[in-house]
């Protein structure tokens, strides 16, 4: 069982899925010879050729729009958008078409495609290179929105996303690409989409996180255990949409308290839907209001100020203490 970082784990999944299914192909900017700006597609073109690993022209709508056409034909394209901040130039192709073709054609066509995008802060990058925009995709019927939290979930979820018959937006936290290595099994594995994991069991409070924020939540849980003697359950959502409400509700029904952590701005963000789902399903168990620890509602803070807006361990601990004391 080799130890891989998330870049290598994603790369492994791409190799495995392309070897498994000749209909799977990769397209995007710099994904071929260069192996992608983060090297996630490294060596794929050498192995599978330039017809299957396509260095596309620099045009996001062209990438997604042509991938929709390929998917309508029966291929299974994996698109790389270089940074999620550039995806607004293809947002119409995602919302108007990739998400809707199954419905529009009443099942005659569908778009089995994955759109990979690096998202989030933590890499001292410029504007449009640090944002978290998962809420836009999670809001769109017909799409699935997946965010792994480390090498092993990244490899398993990417394989599942590629095999899923519906279009999947697959966000990769830049902060996690090289953050840590994890044991990844030799054999290909998948994780079901739409299913959250209990990353740590506890009875007093539920912390809900995903992507790069999982590590923040787990460290906060450690602090709360050590300093407060609080037993904190941590949920790793893994799929933002469709949201695993059953796991959320079961956890909060047990703990009675919940704090949601995400890098996206607060208002109308995933935390709002998560809080509403808890209200719907576990209202009678709640001991305190559901709190959100998120980025502030600013367009862009700049990396000189990024640490002040992206949730960190002290902020999560403080919110958890207030919730526990409510």
């Amino acid at each position: 069982m080799p130890k891989l970082n998330m870049v290598k784990a994603l790369n492994t999944a791409l190799f495995e899925e392309m070897a498994r299914d000749p209909d799977v192909l990769v397209l995007g900017e710099d994904v071929g010879v260069d192996g992608g700006v983060f090297r996630v597609t490294d060596d794929l073109q050498r192995k599978f050729g330039s017809q299957r690993v396509i260095d596309s022209p620099l045009a996001e709508a062209g990438i997604i729009g042509t991938a929709v056409g390929m998917a309508l034909y029966g291929l299974k394209p994996i698109c790389e958008i270089q940074f999620s901040g550039f995806a607004f130039q293809c947002f119409h192709q995602i919302e108007n078409h990739a998400a809707r073709y199954r419905s529009r054609s009443q099942g005659r066509f569908h778009c089995q495609m994955v759109i990979r995008m690096p998202y989030g802060g933590g890499v001292r990058a410029l504007e449009h290179h640090t944002e978290s925009e998962e809420q836009f995709y999670a809001h769109i019927p017909g799409l699935k929105m997946v965010i792994p939290s480390g090498p092993r979930t990244a490899r398993a979820l990417l394989a599942a996303a590629i095999r899923d018959p519906d279009p999947v937006i697959f966000f990769e936290a830049k902060a996690l690409y090289h953050a840590a290595k994890e044991d990844v099994p030799d054999e290909s594995e998948t994780l079901p989409l739409g299913r959250a994991q209990v990353a740590r069991e506890g009875g007093d409070l539920t912390l809900i996180a995903y992507g790069a924020m999982l590590r923040v939540a787990l460290e906060a849980a450690d602090v709360l255990q050590t300093e407060d003697g609080a037993s904190v359950e941590v949920l790793d959502l893994l799929t933002i949409s469709p949201l695993d409400r059953a796991t959320l509700v079961a956890s909060v029904a047990k703990t009675g308290r919940a704090v949601v952590v995400h890098e996206a701005p607060r208002s109308f963000g995933p935390g709002a839907e998560i809080a509403a789902s808890i209200m719907d399903g576990a209202f009678l168990s709640l001991e305190a209001p559901v709190r959100r620890v998120t980025a502030y509602d600013v367009a862009f803070a700049g990396f000189a100020r990024e640490k002040a807006t992206v949730p960190d361990v002290p902020r999560v601990v403080a919110a958890a203490r207030e919730t526990l004391a409510f």
């Binding site: 042509t66 056409g69 390929m70 998917a71 309508l72 034909y73 029966g74 394209p77 119409h92």
Partner: peptide, 21 residues
């Protein structure tokens, strides 16, 4: 393909279909 209403957005689909063919 069925009717596409947003103007010009179907053109890349045609290119993708042709690539796939």
């Amino acid at each position: 393909l069925p009717v596409t209403i947003p103007v010009a957005t179907q053109l890349p689909h045609a290119v993708g279909l042709a690539y796939a063919a």
